[in-house]
Amino acid sequence: MRSLTGPQAMTLTINGDARQVVVYPGETLLYTLRGDALGLTGAKPGCENGDCGACTVLIEQMPVKSCMVLTVEVEGSDITTVEGLQHAPIQQAFIDHGAFQCGYCTSGFLMVGHALSQQPDHDQGRLVEWLRSNICRCTSYQEITDAVRAVCSEIES
């Protein structure tokens, strides 16, 4: 049985790199990512209630709201943040389709869109279902949907 109390030194695999951190068992992944040790502020604190999706990252290539998981739960998992998506097609698609206004929700949508584009099945129903996990208060939903659809179509072709 694994038992953790007090601050813990552990290694997290983030964007392909092994990163040493010290975390408390009660820390969420969002808090750890954005802390001074890692400084990965791409994942945004929005509601911190699992509703908005602005803090979405990928765990083993699948979207997870990082405010809804303890860091100690993901030790040994492959974590991808928006900082790890450099030059991913989804970024250019968001630019091409003007898929953001204030941009606060953008990293979360990018993570969901990227993860979906890597799935073998990304039909319209699945696309809508996955994107419903995130909220854009500027209501750029149509442009975001168009951008994600464009990347999925590009990969299919």
Partner: peptide, 21 residues
Amino acid sequence: MIPFDLFYYRPDTVDEALQAY
């Protein structure tokens, strides 16, 4: 973030979980 110091246990069996509780 759970705003207090937390003990975290991850048992591998039902018996370990009951024992930990």
